[in-house]
Simulated assay, not measured.
Amino acid sequence: MTKPKFSFTHYDLKQQRAGVSIEITLSAVANVRLMTENNFALYKQAMKHQFIGGVARKSPIRLTIPQSGRWHVVVDMEGHHGQSGSSIRIIETAATPRFQSAS
């Protein structure tokens, strides 16, 4: 089992529902990857994986959970020099208001 040759910061978001936004604050340019449980397992083994995000050149950035499930955020410096500090914040989105019929 191969592991990534670079260090990364991992945030386990646990179970999240679709539509929740994640705000990631960085101190430098870094890669930000929002991924499912299965894709995170592939990432840790340095295998091909899928993610939402990419190179974050500004901070903070926001990513939205596309479907309910267990999610992970990874911040890494692959392809970049130096180090980047990071923090995340889960932003609860308001439920869609339901209209009721007047009698």
Rank of each mutant, 00 (worst) to 15 (best):
L34C: 03
G19C: 09
M35Y: 02
P97S: 15
R62Y: 00
E78F: 02
E23N: 06
A30F: 10
Y43N: 02
V20L: 05
L63R: 06
E37G: 11
M77D: 02
S103F: 02
T93W: 06
T25Q: 15
K44S: 09
L13I: 02
G53D: 11
G53W: 11
H10I: 02
K14W: 02
T96Y: 08
I88F: 03
R62W: 00
S101Q: 12
M47C: 12
K44C: 11
I90G: 11
H80G: 00
E23K: 08
S59F: 12
S59D: 14
V75H: 08
T9R: 10
Q100C: 12
F8L: 08
Y43H: 07
M47K: 15
P60E: 15
S7I: 01
M77H: 00
R70D: 11
E37F: 14
M1G: 07
G82V: 01
Q15H: 14
G19Y: 04
F51P: 13
T64C: 08
K58L: 11
G79P: 00
M35D: 03
G82A: 13
L26T: 04
S103M: 03
Y43C: 06
I91V: 15
I24D: 08
S103N: 03
H49A: 07
S87A: 15
I88D: 01
Q83R: 12
Q100D: 13
T64Y: 03
E23F: 01
G69L: 04
I52W: 07
T2N: 08
V29M: 11
L34T: 03
A28W: 02
K14G: 03
P66M: 06
A30G: 14
N31R: 09
H81C: 08
D12V: 00
L42F: 12
K44L: 07
A95R: 15
D76N: 00
H81M: 11
N38M: 02
T96M: 12
P97V: 13
R89S: 08
E37W: 10
F99S: 11
T64H: 06
I65S: 05
S21H: 08
T96V: 09
A102I: 15
F51W: 04
T96D: 04
Q83L: 05
